[in-house]
Design a protein around this nucleic acid. Structure first.
Lengths: 231, 231
DNA sequence: CGCCCTATTGAGATTCATCAACTGCGGTGG
DNA sequence: CCACCGCAGTTGATGAATCTCAATAGGGCG
């Protein structure tokens, strides 16, 4: 019998600041059964509905986890950054599609290994639970963004969100491994609306945009105001 | 040490079709340490940020789990129906506010009891994992609704969602324990838009609305078409 | 140098929110 | 028993936010 049961889903959670497994990491025991793989831009790592044979940890690059509807509408549930674990399916099938944002290196291990190890290792179980919880908590915040924030608020929140995932925001420009369309699909907006919001923020001197994959947050407090709907 | 760690959050998952704990239910061991409580309409069961001392199972009525922003904007993350477990916080604090939709009876047990029991009972651990997964999966679907569906599609999806949670939809009218404003706050819409969408669906003979807390789904296939964006 | 892809900007259309009036039901009290 | 009140829901008219469609700009690569 397996610890990992019932419903399908995928997730991604930062387990440590270092992309690779280290001694002391609750997932370290998986290192022995892991192999690394490369994917390039827009390549599919797994599809929603695929049999979930593996779980993954992102070492380099960025990944989007999304749902794609029959008519092509796409909703990105989450961006995976280096160090995050994803494709953490607990059912037979992945509940999200994973695609590479650019060049990507992942570590991958058979799902069954986790189930087996978790039986023996309480620390691993705890870490799994903790990852699920962080996942869920993030999804709840995401719901608020999509349901109750304006376009500009969402874009500001998004920038702050990415900034907070990077280890303790310093002053230098934030790396955005995803394109504008990806941001739009994460925020439930169109690419044009995302652009306009970014342009607005730039005009108001809250951010700088040295190039399309970098944003410098020049006024965190003001950005937070915008994100919270402060006029 | 506890199995339940790190991040705050609350959830609600149907564990069985019967509201109460039964032998065979993985959560049955909790029955002995549970007490039952009553709440009435709009009463708060717990607040986001409260220290999470208890977890709950809903026996009767309905509960909303929501986030409320400083400016009053509200996003409902989930409706709790009889049989669902919620307030399942894994951190020190609840990450959502729980409020009664009407008269409510809940079963409640100290969170610590779950942690202790989970150490010993693999079946309970599995059930906890399974609940988290269902929770997360539901949140992902919810994200798609909010991010990529039109008002009418959302309302149709919502009705189908509630219908599917009730045990195997029969023909008779669906009970909606929540008010129109609650539906709006779940769907990221205004109350007026929800009304208009319902009226539309009624005009098109897809539903009947005998009274404000009941909806009869008269054409499931057509409703599903609407929900999926079929014109 | 030129092409392709992505991003940006602009103009007009559409959806949904806002504001306001009205309806219907349930409860209360004369 | 009936009139009134209050709240939740519905409907209507208008406006704002966002989407759509179209044109332009900019960067990277052959």
């Amino acid at each position: 019998m397996s610890l990992l049961v019932q419903p399908a889903y995928s997730n991604s959670v930062r387990t440590s600041l270092e992309p690779f497994f280290h001694e002391g990491d609750a997932l370290f025991p998986l290192k022995a059964v892991s192999t690394s793989l490369h994917f390039s831009r827009n390549q599919t790592i797994f599809n929603e509905g695929d049999v979930a044979r593996y779980s993954y940890k992102l070492l380099e690059g960025g990944v989007r986890l999304c749902k794609i509807r029959p008519d092509g509408r796409r909703q990105i549930a989450e961006f995976v950054l280096p160090g995050d674990v994803f494709g953490f399916a607990l059912d037979e099938e992945y509940s999200l599609t994973a695609e590479a944002l650019g060049d990507v290196i992942v570590l991958r291990w058979p799902r069954g290994q986790v189930e087996r190890l978790a039986e023996e290792l309480p620390a691993l179980r705890k870490e799994l639970m903790a990852m699920l919880c962080r996942e869920l908590s993030a999804a709840q915040e995401h719901l608020v963004m999509l349901g109750r924030q304006t376009a500009k608020e969402r874009v500001a929140s998004f920038l702050l969100l990415i900034a907070n995932r990077r280890d303790a925001g310093n002053g230098d420009p934030l790396l955005l491994p995803m394109g504008r369309q990806d941001i739009a699909d994460y925020l439930g907006l169109t690419i044009e609306t995302v652009c306009r919001a970014l342009t607005d923020l730039k005009r108001e001197r809250l951010i700088e945009i040295p190039d399309r994959h970098h944003v410098e947050l020049r006024n965190l407090a003001a950005l937070e105001d915008v994100a919270e709907g402060g006029e």
